[in-house]
């Protein structure tokens, strides 16, 4: 190979970059975050259900919250009718009544997924 030294050096740098996710995780276990569902309000529920089905909540809660804010600010609408026809106050307080703690619930997932909602700049949850 011509200029072998330089080319091999380049290839080693390439390998070091593309395999970063592998060697930086050596010895780590793949632990799923556990948002705390063991709160007094939830224990009192007959049916352990969130506002909408759990799968929907996991993926779409941020859209739901934003929709609540828009409803409130634009339409002056302060209640939300869920798909099972229950009516909730469109407010963060509703979530926190059941989920109580931002740290033990919301943040466990968010830290894991690397999201920092800018919403916290204006809203305080607990």
């Amino acid at each position: 190979m011509y200029d072998g030294g330089k080319i091999i050096t380049g290839l080693i740098i390439f390998l070091a970059i593309v395999t970063f996710p592998f060697y930086s995780n050596i010895g780590k276990a793949n632990i799923k975050p556990a948002p705390d569902l063991d709160t007094p309000a939830i224990q009192e529920l007959d049916e352990k259900k969130c506002i909408e089905p759990t799968g929907f909540m996991r993926a779409n809660h941020m859209k739901l919250l934003k929709q609540w804010m828009d409803d409130l600010q634009e339409l002056d609408k302060d209640t939300y009718r869920a798909s099972d026809c229950k009516v909730y106050d469109s407010s963060y307080d509703t979530c926190m009544e059941c989920h109580v703690s931002q740290q033990n619930f919301c943040d466990r997932c968010h830290t894991y997924a690397g999201v920092k909602p800018y919403c916290w700049e204006c809203h305080e949850l607990d």
Binding site: P21, F22, N25, K28, A29, N30, K32, P33, G55, R58, A59, N60, K63, C109, Y112, A113, V115
Partner: peptide, 24 residues
């Protein structure tokens, strides 16, 4: 939207060589 936490389960499974495919 998809459930990002499950997605990360999958991707982390790949890079830790303990592949899992979470449901849903």
């Amino acid at each position: 939207k998809v459930d990002i936490v499950s997605v990360k389960q999958l991707t982390m499974g790949l890079v830790t060589f303990s592949p899992v495919v979470p449901q849903g």
